[in-house]
Design a protein around this nucleic acid. Sequence first.
DNA 1: TCTCCGTATAACCAAGTTTTAACAGCTTTG
DNA 2: CAAAGCTGTTAAAACTTGGTTATACGGAGA
Lengths: 237, 237
Amino acid sequence: MTQMPHVLIVDDDEDILSLLTQFLQNQGCQVAVARRGEEMFSLLDTQAVSVVILDVMLRRENGFDLCRQLRTRSSVPVIMLTAVGEHTDRVVGLEIGADDYVTKPFNARELLARIKAVLRRAEIPAPPQDARPMLSFGCWRLDIARRELRSDDNTLIFLSGGEFDLLLAFAEHPQRVLTRDMLLDFTRGDASAPFDRSIDVQISRLRRKLEADPKSPDLIRTVRNGGYILMAQVRRT
Amino acid sequence: MTQMPHVLIVDDDEDILSLLTQFLQNQGCQVAVARRGEEMFSLLDTQAVSVVILDVMLRRENGFDLCRQLRTRSSVPVIMLTAVGEHTDRVVGLEIGADDYVTKPFNARELLARIKAVLRRAEIPAPPQDARPMLSFGCWRLDIARRELRSDDNTLIFLSGGEFDLLLAFAEHPQRVLTRDMLLDFTRGDASAPFDRSIDVQISRLRRKLEADPKSPDLIRTVRNGGYILMAQVRRT
DNA sequence: TCTCCGTATAACCAAGTTTTAACAGCTTTG
DNA sequence: CAAAGCTGTTAAAACTTGGTTATACGGAGA
């Protein structure tokens, strides 16, 4: 969840409302509340809601009916709140088009997990993380298709085209000394022949971006009179 | 559910296997079983599976790990079977990418309802008659039917036709680099071939309207020598 | 320790790419 | 038909990139 999810809670029990609101806000959600179905619908029309939490037992309305109505006009994910023991109701809830349900009394953390799960489902699948060829080494992951470098915590490290090519050359020939000539070959298949030292500069620029301490490089070591070598093991994924 | 759903049960408890197989077949499902993760993966590779039912406690493997592995290569819906009382496990299950879980001992009818619910979600959300298909990303909502863009606080942002089309192309292919060519294809299915740079201009016009700071765009980033990419996650609503 | 020589890096610059203002041709609208 | 608005084209400006240069740095061997 990169952005703030917007949760709409529909309940007429003030205790639950304030408890949930507080909790979800602390968890970084934007929260709206509705005490009746009507209010729910008007909020849905005017706000971007990413998930609805709907109590089955409202004093004057029936959560199932609301859910069914909602389904005729929107496909926003719905999580139902049900009381314990209403076993058949559970089933009905899911058959009616709810996306999930949580039984009261519920554990707030569990509810959060459900919300996350439901939101994840609603996301448009970013290109399948699947069969994307990746090279991992140290705490880095090189996504070849996307030409992206990400660190362990998934932050994107910005690399220019040439920097990426150079790093890729290393990742494809790990733990081998690569001469400047070889590196030029790898990064510029064609015969254009820039002055050697340009590699040094690119190396320096790379190190600045991925070495913990660029002054004493750990990942890409210099081999005097030889070239450079990527120290880490590389895994294909 | 128009055709027979194809359920893959992964468990090493013969009782559960035969019970479930029988029940689900009676209910009109096609059923396959796997007794180990390996078998599961090979079945997934060779058969069209619409939902996987995965036991958390296999004798020699860990269902959570299997689920996680599965998620790295497929988005087939997964329902986990967990024993009662493993509360934290529940939460972990959902966070791991499972779509739902059922606690043992479970009621076969309930499981069927879960399967149905999960399958319904997985269907390409054929927009119900009156539903307004929306794509939300960042603090924006794109109303496809009305061709409107609204911000979180519900203000309408006026977009011209071309601007809307371009933004829609991004919203439908989030987090992917789209070349100018692709963007031309998406926005003008037909073969008219305006000069590339026209995309740049449209991008610039879009950014002026939706980037907080158009000078350092956050939402639609430039990929030098590549094209453009929508950074935000997109949800259908 | 000192020198030599290879390497590191900052700074600069040229080439190439992207951004954007301005404009012109079209289409739409009243 | 005029006015308004949309969109592609153009061109100038801004920005990026990556090679070159110059200088600093540092290790090996004398």
